[in-house]
Amino acid sequence: SGVFQLQLQEFINERGVLASGRPCEPGCRTFFRVCLKHFQAVVSPGPCTFGTVSTPVLGTNSFAVRDDSSGGGRNPLQLPFNFTWPGTFSLIIEAWHAPGDDLRPEALPPDALISKIAIQGSLAVGQNWLLDEQTSTLTRLRYSYRVICSDNYYGDNCSRLCKKRNDHFGHYVCQPDGNLSCLPGWTGEYCQQPICLSGCHEQNGYCSKPAECLCRPGWQGRLCNECIPHNGCRHGTCSTPWQCTCDEGWGGLFCDQDLNYCTHHSPCKNGATCSNSGQRSYTCTCRPGYTGVDCELELGSHHHHHHHH
């Protein structure tokens, strides 16, 4: 889908005459009929296959045509099409004299034609206007033209439909050739896949919007690359989730059984020697003169008892 645009710029008819050579009375009240059709090596009569458009009376004899893009939008003239632009065309522009206000063909005298030009050739889709000037014996017409795609249509012949979007179904804009261009933070065929936080673990992390990193069960940390140990694991670590691998000196399912009670708690008193003997248990070897589980009691060995006969 696209539109052929024709910008009429200036028409010169200094002597104010018709194609027949007869002068217009009182002057040539000039309007234009435009016919756009498929390429013909020799432009011949027949239907205007790409469309046709007429203007109101634009001036008398010689005049410049003012730009009217803000007003009724008559100039440039619009010839829309909804097929693949073939890249070639034929264009016929006729200038007519209107004695009255009725511009219909049947209302005009048969010799009301002022001039007729016909061009043909190739024309690529693009923003640039092509300027042209055609001169006949008594008249001159300056104009320019171009073909542009309609909104949401792209490519060399306006055949690629693309509507930019930024919603659940995609996050992209359209390139001139109609290909998608993802908005920052998105990837995938329709740019509907978020790009997670850089470094987010491929298996254990995921995201629902760009630059986030949500952890799957069993994983934690900014990049979801740290495992979560078994619930209740006290003195232990993991390399896969829900493990509890005990730190040195600890035992039991939750690594809460102290295998190194002597070092951690120093229970033995008075210079006694401490030996670990399994989970949370220990033995104190007392120095001479001391007793008790923790060698906390002093032996009464220095008390002398006298026996009387």
Rank of each mutant, 00 (worst) to 15 (best):
K209F: 13
G27W: 01
L58G: 00
Q5F: 05
K163A: 10
H304I: 13
C295P: 05
H230W: 10
K37W: 00
T30S: 00
Q120K: 14
Q203V: 12
Y282P: 04
Q134P: 01
L197D: 00
Q193K: 08
F31A: 00
T245F: 08
C255K: 14
N157I: 06
T283R: 09
F4V: 03
D102G: 01
L79T: 05
A112L: 06
G289L: 08
G178K: 04
P80Y: 14
G278R: 07
W129F: 05
Q220K: 14
Q257F: 15
G278Y: 14
R216G: 06
I117E: 06
A211T: 04
A211E: 02
C224W: 01
G289I: 08
V3F: 09
L131C: 07
G251N: 13
P267G: 09
L36D: 00
W186C: 12
E202L: 12
W186Y: 09
N276M: 14
D132I: 04
F4H: 04
S90I: 02
Q5G: 14
G100P: 02
P241V: 11
G232C: 08
S144M: 06
H309M: 11
E298N: 08
N225H: 10
F63D: 00
R66M: 02
T49G: 04
S198H: 11
Y143R: 02
C213S: 03
F81S: 10
V42W: 05
G251S: 15
Q203F: 15
A211F: 13
T291Q: 13
P217I: 14
R104W: 07
I228T: 13
T60S: 14
G271L: 06
T291H: 13
G27I: 02
T137W: 08
W129A: 03
D102C: 03
V34L: 10
G249R: 12
H307T: 07
R29C: 01
E296F: 09
F254N: 05
E296P: 13
Q78N: 15
F39D: 00
F63C: 01
T139I: 01
C35Y: 14
N260D: 15
V3S: 12
C233P: 08
P229S: 15
E296A: 10
C162H: 03
C24V: 07
P86E: 04
G218L: 11
C238L: 02
L138S: 10
K164F: 15
L297P: 05
N152K: 14
F50K: 01
F4E: 02
P56F: 09
Q175C: 07
T30D: 00
N128P: 08
D258F: 11
Y290R: 07
R165C: 04
P26Y: 06
Q5K: 11
G126F: 03
R15F: 05
Q243V: 05
D177A: 15
R165L: 01
P45R: 01
Q175A: 15
K269A: 15
E248I: 11
C255D: 03
Y206T: 08
N260V: 04
A124R: 13
D294F: 09
S275V: 05
P288K: 11
L91Y: 08
C244G: 03
H303Y: 11
P99T: 02
T263K: 15
F39H: 11
H235S: 13
P288V: 10
